[in-house]
Design a protein around this nucleic acid. Structure first.
Lengths: 188, 188
DNA sequence: CCTCTATGTAAGTTATCACTAACACACATA
DNA sequence: TATGTGTGTTAGTGATAACTTACATAGAGG
């Protein structure tokens, strides 16, 4: 089996369990690899984690936002973007929570800072959509509302287990949020 | 000066800087107290932190939600609740971010788990308000929307420094969010 | 003056952790 | 066959941290 793959998986597993405080020993154990191998390949623990996280961020959170933003109907566009991102975030809930926890602590560089990444990608999508429609909108406010929706499902308790709902039920929820956000958008 | 006060302040300062990983040495230094004093009083680091945090949560985040929920006009009620909580959260932003970070990591007990505390207190306020009005509303969805607003301002990057706005500007923002939430509430 | 309580100082214990060094082995390629 | 590359094993270093122990001191109340 590919050793790099092995190490990445082990590092993520350890990272999810303990955050950046996960010891290299734990990572090695999870990965089924000698501890010294990690140092030979990545020199330091910090380098190991940033390497792994950059990779994960691209692979698991790769954004379809720009593609979605071509949809011309704003309510549909918002619904799609919420549905899409919500699914990704909730499917990787543990990972997302750890990334949020670490970025709140200021442990992450800009490139692996999830709030930063999400927020700017949302803004780009919104800009693209509304530019297309020649509509002037408070992009920041709108992106903040969208971000708030995601954060609420990742952080607040009691989630009616979003991943256990049917596709249609999830879509209904996304639509409800979309309508709410739409109500604050004023046409010129 | 009161030693207990001193210790609490030092502990919070250290906690804000480093989270629960702050060493007892650092706490002692911040508090201007001998390290061993902390152990004599609180036995363990964990006990020290939970004691301090319970105290802080009551003192700094004490809720006016129930009082506010008596307001009969729903838009006004929502605006007030958003304005009130947003001010508290943003004024203690560093502390809030640390509390969120630690609770995401599962390091906190229920009683000092900020998302838990905020969410349930919001739900209580909403229940109270709508019961009063004999109106049936999806309390969970509504509380989640409110929570999302708060989280978005605490976690997402914000250039427009909420605490630097005038009272009126902040109120306008609260009102905008309130209207958005109101739009999802249907009367019977 | 005596005693009790809260505190400080200083030293030490035990554990963990990031990181290194030395050696051995397996395998591929020249 | 000889050599280099990547890996595992084992041991070790130096730092830090939670927590303890022993002893000295300062102030309050009897």
């Amino acid at each position: 089996m590919d050793k790099t793959e092995q190490i990445f998986k082990g590092a993520i597993a350890a990272f999810i369990k303990k955050g950046m405080q996960a010891s290299t020993q734990e990572v090695a154990k999870e990965a089924g690899v000698a501890e010294v191998t990690l140092y030979r390949r990545y020199s330091t623990k910090e380098n190991l984690f940033t390497t792994v996280l950059k990779n994960v961020l691209e692979k698991k959170f790769g954004s379809r936002v720009l593609e979605i933003s071509k949809e011309n109907d704003t309510e549909l566009f918002l619904t799609n973007i919420i549905e899409d991102r919500l699914e990704v975030l909730v499917k990787n809930k543990d990972l997302v929570r750890m990334l949020l926890s670490e970025s709140l602590r200021g442990n992450l560089t800009d490139k692996i800072n999830l709030p930063e990444v999400i927020f700017s990608s949302l803004k780009k999508g919104l800009e693209c959509h509304f530019q297309h429609k020649d509509q002037q909108v408070d992009i920041d406010f709108c992106a903040r509302q969208l971000g708030g929706v995601f954060l609420s499902y990742v952080i607040l308790p009691n989630d009616q287990q979003l991943d256990k709902l049917t596709t249609q039920e999830r879509r209904d929820i996304a639509k409800k949020h979309a309508k709410s956000i739409l109500s604050t958008i004023e046409e010129i």
